[in-house]
């Protein structure tokens, strides 16, 4: 059931990312919704959930991207897994912690892309970092923290209802 839910989420997120997200791009860079979704699910649901959703999202993203067929599968799967590991070792997840975590994971994921692009020299690496890696990391972190703030209340309400029932 959860797998189906993740597949449906991926079917909504990836087409949304490719068709509508250009309206909110800053400096030509869009947030990576797939990465944010995999990380949020990883942080809150554990590394297995993060990994599974990341792999599904990555697979769909690879089909709609000009890059090699492995790159999104590996980065999104890895991001979800890392987020899950980080989330399991934290007592309290706050928006600030989530923001820092997303910045780090987004930078690591973009680092894989930068490596795969075979940059010609340090100038191209620096340009990639400045023009895409940092902007996308900031964008992903802001979006992730925003989504967490929006849904946090609902999640905590659900938890309270469950705790109360027990």
């Amino acid at each position: 059931m959860k797998f189906l839910l993740y597949a449906l989420l991926a079917l909504a997120v990836v087409p949304f990312q490719t068709t509508l997200l250009h309206y909110v791009s800053i400096l030509g860079v869009r947030p990576d919704l797939g990465l944010v979704a995999a990380c949020l699910v990883g942080f809150l649901g554990g590394e297995l959930d993060g990994l599974i959703l990341g792999l599904i999202l990555g697979c769909f993203q690879d089909m709609l991207s000009a890059g090699d067929l492995w790159i999104n599968v590996v980065t999104k799967g890895g991001a979800g897994f890392l987020a899950g590991l980080a989330g399991r070792h934290m007592a309290h997840i706050t928006p600030a912690v989530l923001t820092v975590g997303l910045v780090i994971i987004s930078c690591l994921s973009s680092g894989v892309f930068l490596y795969a692009m075979n940059p010609a020299g340090i100038d191209e690496i620096w340009m990639g970092v400045r023009s895409t890696v940092l902007v996308q990391a900031a964008f992903d972190a802001a979006l992730g923290a925003g989504l967490y703030l929006i849904f946090r209340r609902r999640w905590s309400d659900d938890r309270m209802v469950t705790d109360g029932a027990l």
Partner: peptide
Amino acid sequence: VIGRDATNWYRGVI
């Protein structure tokens, strides 16, 4: 053209 590349790393359209 119905979309743009799913990542920020390639200049592509769908």
